[in-house]
Nucleic acid binder design. Structure first.
Length: 262
DNA sequence: ATGGTTGGTCCCCAA
């Protein structure tokens, strides 16, 4: 069972790359974020042609939007909005006896001060709410995959320069501490760091604004796949598909994958 | 200290 998460940054614009990803990575389940697509405009026929016969989508016009594409049946599809105004950032479905979450945590704007920046305040409160919810809703023996764009780079080796980025949104102590609390709720395993040493730089996002992203390599690890202890022993493979940043008209995020044994 | 790019929408916002 191979599960991939990707911030697609517009599903309709990048349908061709969804096809490329489907061919090259051959996932069984594909979690998408930032589809930027209302539910009634999802290109279901195109997705079906690519083998995505089961599609759950939770989207809105212009912003946000999450999806779970699957080659196996999905059931018990649910959504949550953790914001004051409804936002499409959290979609849940069951597949093969597991619960899969496609999650898009708010980016948080530019100024890392909740007093001055409402978006950063919204991000911190979003994190606080899901920490409470996961802690109160599940236990470590529940088989859950939490995948998505968390918009937080938790470790020093998850950013290109730890000291420089301590005051930059995605890597501030307020955010990384909360991600630590979230990880503790169900004793989640961070799949990437299960396979990659904690001090080895690992990035999944490079800004569109850096002209030569590979040379400068000013990246951050914002995209994550976490699993509960119930699934940890089934982790057999992992990949950050860095080459995806060089696809034609790429997303600024690259796909992250895990493979679970049967 | 600032600017750089991309996507969606409706003349600017979010990332």
């Amino acid at each position: 069972m191979k599960i991939v998460t990707w911030n697609v940054n517009s599903l309709r614009l990048r349908l061709g790359l969804v096809e490329k990803l489907t061919d090259e990575l051959a996932p069984d389940v594909l979690c998408l974020q930032e589809t930027k697509c209302p539910d009634d405009l999802v290109p279901h026929e195109d997705l079906k042609r690519l083998g995505w016969t089961h599609v759950a989508h939770h989207g809105q016009k212009g912003y946000n939007g999450v999806a779970i594409l699957s080659k196996r049946p999905l059931s018990n599809v649910r959504t949550h909005s953790w914001c004051d105004t409804p936002q499409c950032r959290h979609l849940i479905a069951e597949v093969d006896g597991m619960e899969v979450h496609s999650l898009y945590i708010p980016a948080g704007g530019d100024v890392p001060d909740p007093e001055k920046n409402p978006k950063f305040d919204q991000k911190l409160r979003f994190l606080d709410k899901i920490i409470d919810w996961f802690a109160g809703t599940y236990g470590p023996r529940d088989p859950i995959v939490l995948a998505g764009d968390f918009n937080v780079a938790p470790l020093a080796a998850d950013v290109w320069d730890h000291k420089k980025l301590l005051k930059v949104v995605t890597h501030t102590p307020a955010e990384t501490a909360r991600l630590g609390f979230l990880r503790q709720t169900l004793d989640w395993t961070d799949s990437t760091r299960h396979f990659v040493p904690h001090d080895e730089p690992a990035f999944t996002w490079w800004s569109y604004r850096s002209p030569d992203w590979r040379k400068g390599n000013r990246g951050r690890r914002l995209d994550h796949i976490w699993v509960t202890p119930a699934l940890k022993d089934r982790l057999v493979d992992h990949d950050i598909h860095v080459d995806g940043r060089d696809w034609n008209k790429p997303s600024d995020h690259v796909p992250v994958s895990v493979t679970l044994s049967a």
